[in-house]
Design a binder for these strands. Sequence first.
DNA 1: GCCGGAATGTTATAGCATTACATTGCCGTG
DNA 2: CACGGCAATGTAATGCTATAACATTCCGGC
Lengths: 131, 131
Amino acid sequence: MSAHTDLTRNQSLVLDRLEKAETPMSAYAILDQLRDDGLRAPLQIYRALDKLLDMGLAHRLESINAFVACAHPHCHASGLIAFAICEKCGQVSEFSDEIVRDRLAGWADREGFVVNRTTMEIRGNCRACAA
Amino acid sequence: MSAHTDLTRNQSLVLDRLEKAETPMSAYAILDQLRDDGLRAPLQIYRALDKLLDMGLAHRLESINAFVACAHPHCHASGLIAFAICEKCGQVSEFSDEIVRDRLAGWADREGFVVNRTTMEIRGNCRACAA
DNA sequence: GCCGGAATGTTATAGCATTACATTGCCGTG
DNA sequence: CACGGCAATGTAATGCTATAACATTCCGGC
Ligand SMILES: [Zn+2]
Ligand SMILES: [Zn+2]
Ligand SMILES: [Zn+2]
Ligand SMILES: [Zn+2]
């Protein structure tokens, strides 16, 4: 809460939930946990999430229709983030790679493709779960 | 048809639709176009798509919940495919990059992450639509 | 106080995907 | 040929994900 005083009530509630979660959460799972706080409709969650995504405080995992709090909210200069999602325990690692970013930017340049947003998600098993 | 004699009837119907489409199609859009061929339920489409994905004859675009026929069905050695999706005209370009693949594989090695599947999707505007 | 924009609340609906179960067709074995 | 096993198919029902449309409230600037 105190860390995000510029957020509205709903946005704070949603972000708090995401930060406390150990794994990605679907919008409906978030909603279920916020019923006691007075939230009742999916749209309330989706609206809060939209803002949090805009601010870079949360991310959407396209391949599993779920959301996570940003792991590095203060150092996102790169602009291209990759996620590794463990399909067994649900843990998500967030990382970025300059060279990957440059390669994709190079491809886009050559093709004349104007990039809006990039999704990079690796699914598999984390070290603990692969053992 | 003649090109995919090892496919079942439903699989052939679905793949034909995807190959004739100029843009990605949702499962329900495919279904709508195959009603005249006797297909009636979403599950029939999803089952055919599952097999086509397994065989590498089609791809799923996670970021838009849609499917495309593979553009290079015969040269997929790389194993890591990226897609550029134009948000205006819907055109999809399929490409791969060895260096990107190596970088991601390197990260996974260092982290002990066992990769199962990788999604890479760039959204934006193609050259024609960006002009 | 008044206005305008942003956020919120509520209901309904649209769009995507799977579960469960019954049926059919095909192929190899006896 | 009869039978058993297995993959594909058909059908209905359900669940999950996301947005449309509209009314209301909140809050800062003038
Ligand atoms: Zn982040
Ligand atoms: Zn794990
Ligand atoms: Zn392909
Ligand atoms: Zn285009």
